[in-house]
Design a protein around this nucleic acid. Structure first.
Length: 201
DNA sequence: CTGTAGATGATC
DNA sequence: ATCATCTACAGC
């Protein structure tokens, strides 16, 4: 039986939580289908790196209606609309007021695959199914309804990966945050080396 | 295989 | 005007 991520485990800086999430499973329980994806790529947002604040995080401009979930206690989801058409899912971490979150950038499909194919208008499982933040949200039916949802509940949660599995992880700069002056250089993207579902970069 | 234009709407 | 993106389509 795999262990669920607990509230306390989300109360750390995003840059510490993000690499730990690799190999864990994102689970979304729907009335008719349960979606499961193995997390293979994450990015940390918010907080500081070598005493520089992350100017790439949504929360950097302050608390607004949109970014309010980031300022809550770790352990909830932060879902937002991007480019007018797609959704991105983050896991809020750290303590209240310390706005930090981990973006789930890619997963490997594990369960609910038939329905993922329908949602993505695909006929075969390829890396294209879930190798991007917008793609995985579309496949796993994650949208605004899941914003601020409790990740220790029964609907959307994280399961720890099997211990003892050898996993080569790497880190790099984050994708598509050229607008961030300082933050664009933070090595806050984490991924499983050679996993085909990691998005290109 | 590479690169890029356009979709599309909330945010500030 | 700006986006923590994706698809389609062009041109090798």
């Amino acid at each position: 039986m795999m262990r669920k991520w607990q509230y306390e485990e989300f109360q750390e800086p995003a840059a510490k939580v993000a690499p730990k999430l690799l190999g864990s499973y994102l689970v979304h329980v729907r009335p008719d289908t349960t979606f499961v994806g193995r997390i293979v790529e994450t990015e940390a947002y918010g907080g500081t790196y070598r005493r520089q604040v992350d100017d790439g995080a949504h929360s950097h401009k302050g608390l607004t209606a949109r970014t309010e979930p980031m300022f809550c206690a770790g352990g909830i989801a932060y879902v937002y609309l991007i480019y007018g058409m797609y959704y991105c899912m983050n896991i809020v971490t750290a303590s209240p007021g310390d706005a930090q979150a981990v973006l789930i950038r890619a997963v490997e499909p594990v369960d609910g695959i038939e329905r993922m194919l329908v949602n993505r208008k695909a006929t075969k499982v390829t890396k294209n199914l879930t190798n991007g933040p917008g793609k995985l949200c579309m496949a796993m039916e994650i949208g605004l309804a899941e914003n601020k949802i409790d990740l220790c509940g029964e609907s959307l949660f994280i399961l720890h990966g099997e211990s003892g599995i050898l996993m080569h992880t790497e880190r790099s700069r984050r994708i598509n945050i050229d607008y961030a002056v300082k933050g664009k250089y933070f090595p806050w993207r984490f991924y499983i080396k050679n996993n085909p579902f990691v998005s290109k970069g």
